[in-house]
Design a protein around this nucleic acid. Structure first.
Lengths: 206, 206, 206, 206
DNA sequence: CATGAATGAGGATTCATTCAT
DNA sequence: TATGAATGAATCCTCATTCAT
């Protein structure tokens, strides 16, 4: 996490660094992301960077944390399921919100995508394992709630279903857009509905 | 594809190079994989490498092709679905075979995983798009066959279901092992069954 | 100069090597020209190349010699000045022939251009000094003849005038074409006439 | 152009780099010039070099610009033609100054020569076209002035005559020295006079 | 606390030539 | 005589981090 010096910075400067880092890590996976470019675009001297962050990984962790916070705060109103929706309806809404978030914050989405798909185990895992667990836990809770409400069968493998949802939410902003065409937003939303329906009803006849 | 010079090499040497490359690309995604390390471990001079392969991408394409061939030849006996199994039974068998392949060839599995998940689109896509399409097509065909046989509902989104299976098959050797523990093989196999069951029946109650 | 082995080659093969070398040295100055590419395009093994030529410079000298011979034999009919033209008319015809030669043999012209302008002293000079001297001598003879005929003033610096002509003939195929536009052939020929006129009459008033 | 870091260097160090680069580019045309040798002779680590210059071309552009500035400032007093000399006298003085400059700064002259004669068009043109045009324009102006003063015939091909002068000025420091011997300075100067006389009066009798 | 110069290992690729078969 | 594998130095360039000022 950033050193105190970073938080003591005037907001404008702090923001420029944040933005520049966001750009760089959105365009490149961890290893390819270049501190050199970040400081150049932020207009700060190299020495300063290492006064704000202990190293590259430190900056990266910080960004991930920020993205996570932002996403949580974006989704929080939803998350309570205030209107008491059916489990699957609720998941649909949640996913749609996630898509909207990605559309409004493409860089954040891109970084998240890198993090979840990049296979540089050594560098990522340490950071990402927490987040992965958290993500899985969220879906597990939702499903457990569904079981309680009677929406979801009681005898299914919860971990597995949660994993399915987790995978889905990650691939949405990346792969799926490419595979199914950069469709209009509405089409895309209906794709989400199909996905959840598929999970609800399965594809087996009868 | 490798130059003739590579194929003219004594098998022992050719193998050492192949093994060294396999190691390197299993441990690192494309960009991080280092020619220097490959030649060092293979015990060949740098100049020689470039007499066997035109460049890094050339070597990489070669490896992917080899992996693909090996996997195909491994799965071919299954693929015909000779015993006329039900669609979902058939998928289970196919996945189990895939898992066995990954267990027997962990490096190959790892490289495939890198290829399908890495976010360095520019470098990979050229090579990988074909393979991705092929992969998807296989699952689509299986599902279409299932529809014909009456195993699978006729009104589902085939593309989506195929995509789900594709994702699943890729994550099996990687993620799932980590997440669900390096369990005994039998446990792992039962996980596969759960996954397919989930796809067949859905998780919705009733 | 090539080894005997080269001359013993079947003509077709010898020619393929010659053509390939011509291509390479037309596209690149000496240092950038690549033996690797030459043998690849010629379709001969690398070992063979060094059985025909002792090294790169050997091949290069050979090409220069061939070009020189070809040009001489092209210009020979002219050179005798059989119709007993005035010195300046004769030069004009000679230059025009030179241009025609360059148009008909663009690769040869290009190689000549490289040779005369490239500043890799160490590599070129050894070869080129002879040719340069020969070239200068030709023009000196023409001018001396002009003096004898009374076309050319007796008290001028012959070496210098010869040098001027030499420079001119070299720059024609290269620079001048670029500078004065890739004009129609006739325009270009009239440019030559202007050049010789300028040499004949000077630009001073009166 | 160099980065700020270069200009911030202590002068002694900056100079060592400058001198080393000058040496290298004087001895070799662009492509053959080696960054490795430059840094070795300058006694700086490789990483440092790339903190001062973005790349090889950057350094090269810088050198060319420096040479150009130095030459301009050297010739400026002449250029005004303050004593209202006849066009041809003026050219003689200008050329003599150019020769003096070349004798005093042989490396700079050599680099200029490389730049103007090397046939590696792709690399040079971007940088050199400006300079070439500027050079031609200067001579064109001088000749135009000569026409106005009545020194130069009004009906000649100005472009061509300017081109002649341009070629001459470039070959002076290079070729001519070689061809006409490293003669005493006075002899050399008289050669220049001959050249201009030749241009003024032509070599035709009468 | 800010600065920015120093560093050297590492990246991929090209090359002309030699030499054993 | 034909072959083609072996070689290692050379090319330009990027990088994250340290440290003296």
């Amino acid at each position: 996490m950033p050193k105190e010096t970073f938080y003591n910075l005037p907001e404008a400067k702090r923001n420029k660094i944040y933005e520049s880092a966001l750009d760089e890590f959105a365009k490149n996976p961890y290893r390819q992301a270049s501190i050199n470019r970040i400081i150049e675009n932020a207009g700060i001297p190299k020495g300063s960077f290492y006064q704000y962050f202990t190293n590259k990984k430190d900056l990266y962790k910080f960004l991930i944390e920020e993205i996570y916070k932002k996403k949580i705060s974006y989704l929080t109103p939803e998350m309570a399921n205030p209107s008491g929706m059916n489990c699957f309806e609720f998941l649909k809404e949640l996913f749609k919100s996630g898509i909207r978030f990605a559309k409004e914050n493409p860089r954040l989405a891109k970084i998240g995508q890198h993090m979840l798909s990049d296979s540089e185990a050594d560098t990522y895992n340490e950071i990402m394992d927490d987040k992965k667990d958290e993500g899985l836990k969220i879906y597990k809770n939702i499903l457990a709630e569904g079981v309680k409400r009677g929406d979801v069968k009681a005898d299914i493998n919860l971990n597995l279903a949660a994993y399915y949802l987790f995978q889905l939410s990650n691939s949405i902003s990346g792969d799926l857009i490419d595979l199914f065409g950069k469709s209009e937003e509405e089409n895309f939303m209906s794709l989400v509905e199909d996905m959840i329906d598929l999970l609800e009803n399965g594809i087996g006849s009868k």
